[in-house]
Structure formats: structure tokens, C-alpha cells
């Protein structure tokens, strides 16, 4: 008798209510749509996450590598109860956030990656996924960690997260922090924005295609020299490299 191994390996198929798309105006006047994507959309997102693996700045490389694996695992049915939201401006992918449901009451926040920096793109996307955990899944707390100092400032400080250091987070096994529903409600007035329903033309544009980021994060111009400069107070190599890069040689 044959055994369907794939059936064993796949996560249990638990249905979850969908995230209703929303939109908001950024400081620059652009309207950003945040919506949930399905498995079928993942290959399009992976194409735009992959280049960030090589951006050795603000832990983009670590975050992108982990996000890539999480998205791929979701696409290939190797992670339990994951969801993925994207933020788009005129179809352009500007942020990806994801997480999963750990239990009825507890959410596990995975990653927040801004593909366009500034203007609170990542912060708005993060707030949306917390909204999903609390308002739609009805959870009581979400476990969070940050890989970068920027993330620490945005989540731990801005939301005044509580420590859950006795609980290892799924990202790296490091001690967890917690956003409780009470803390989220406290931050709601200042940090959580967005309007529903999304106007038809905005939503259609977003769904039509996940376009590549126009100004993605970039690696330092000269990483080797930048690293070396930490130890070399004269930094001659850095100066000569920059000199050449700007066409002065």
C-alpha cells in the first residue's frame, strides 16, 4: 500500500479570515495599498526579495534571507498557518510583512521588509499585520523580535513592547518581546492608520501586477573599505576607492 508522504509533510490546512485591504496616503502624497496575497503571488515577490540578500546594510541581508525562506516555505507548503501582506504604490512593491498564527491567542510576527525606505512605509505595513493579528484573528498577543536597530526602535520602543524573555522566538531562538492587545490599542490612535474600502482603481492597479521596487535598498558603495575603516583611522583604501568611483581617477 502506497503512502502519500506529501500529505504527511504538508501543514494542516486551517482556514483563516482574510485581511481586508486598506490604503493610506504617505507624506509624499502617494497612496499605498496594503493587501493580503495568496500563494500564487509568492514567486513574483521572491524575485524582488532575492536582491536584498546581498545588501549588507541594516541587516537587510539577514532579514531578506529569512523572509525568502519563509515565503518559499509558504509557497511550497512547508510552514503552518503563515500569512503574507504586501504594500504597493501604483503596483510597485514597497514592503512585505508576514507572520503566522501560533495558537488561538498568540501570533508570531515574522518579518517586515521595506523595499522603499523612508515615509514610514515599513511602519505602516507592520501596523497592518498587527491589526490582522488582533482585529481579525482575535489574538491576545503577538511575539516579536527585531534583527536591526531600526526594527528595535520601531517596534520595541514605539509600541513599548513587553518582555517575554522566557519564550524563544521562532526567528533565531532569541528572547521574545510581546505586543499585547492593550498595548496595540494604546498605540492605535497614533501609529495605526488606513482607510477602507480601497477605491476600485487603486486595488485593481495593485492586483494587476506586483511591480519591482524603483528605489530598493542598496549595499554600501564600498563595503570592504567601509568595514576596514572601522579599524583603520587613516582609511587610505576607502578614500582611493571612493575617489575612483566618482570618476576622479
Amino acid at each position: 500500500m502506497s503512502i502519500d508522504v506529501e500529505k504527511i509533510l504538508r501543514p494542516t490546512d486551517n482556514p483563516f479570515p482574510p485581511f481586508q485591504p486598506k490604503y493610506m496616503m504617505l507624506a509624499g502624497g502617494e497612496e499605498m495599498v496594503i493587501r493580503q496575497v495568496s500563494r500564487e503571488d509568492i514567486p513574483d515577490i521572491l524575485k524582488h526579495v532575492e536582491p536584498l540578500l546581498h545588501v549588507e546594510r541594516d541587516y537587510y541581508d539577514v532579514v531578506a534571507a529569512r523572509l525568502y525562506s519563509e515565503l518559499l516555505a509558504y509557497y511550497r507548503y512547508r510552514v503552518q498557518d503563515e500569512y503574507v501582506l504586501v504594500a504597493q504604490i501604483n503596483g510597485e512593491l514597497v514592503a512585505v510583512v508576514n507572520g503566522r498564527s501560533l495558537s488561538k491567542d498568540v501570533g508570531m510576527s515574522y518579518h517586515t521588509v521595506a523595499l522603499r525606505r523612508g515615509l514610514r512605509v515599513g511602519a505602516h505595513a507592520f501596523a497592518s499585520k498587527m491589526e490582522y493579528h488582533f482585529d481579525i484573528l482575535g489574538q491576545k498577543e503577538v511575539l516579536i523580535v527585531a534583527e536591526s536597530p531600526i526594527g528595535f526602535r520601531r517596534w520595541m520602543i514605539e509600541y513599548e513592547l513587553e518582555k517575554r524573555f522566557h519564550m524563544a522566538h521562532e526567528l533565531g531562538g532569541v528572547p521574545s518581546w510581546s505586543l499585547t492587545k492593550e498595548l496595540f490599542n494604546k498605540a492605535r490612535a497614533t501609529l495605526v492608520v488606513g482607510r477602507r474600502p480601497v477605491p476600485k482603481h487603486l486595488l485593481e492597479k495593485a492586483k494587476a501586477a506586483i511591480l519591482p521596487p524603483t528605489d530598493p535598498p542598496k549595499a554600501p558603495a564600498d563595503l570592504l573599505a567601509a568595514t576596514r575603516s572601522m579599524y583603520d583611522s587613516t582609511g587610505t583604501a576607502l578614500m582611493s576607492q571612493r575617489w575612483q568611483q566618482e570618476g576622479n581617477a
Binding site: 493610506m24 496616503m25 507624506a27 509624499g28 502624497g29 502617494e30 523612508g118 501609529l191 495605526v192 482607510r195
Partner: peptide
């Protein structure tokens, strides 16, 4: 330093302005 266009609507008038520009 900042290559970001900002608009009066985005930082002052929109419902999101107080979060964009606290």
C-alpha cells in the same frame, strides 16, 4: 540627505498626516 518629496496633503491635510508627520 533626504530625497523624499513631501506634499501638504501628505504631511498636513490627509487623515494619515498626524502619523506621517507627528
Amino acid at each position: 540627505h533626504l530625497h523624499e518629496k513631501v506634499t501638504l496633503e501628505g504631511i498636513l491635510d490627509s487623515p494619515e498626516a498626524m502619523t506621517n508627520n507627528p
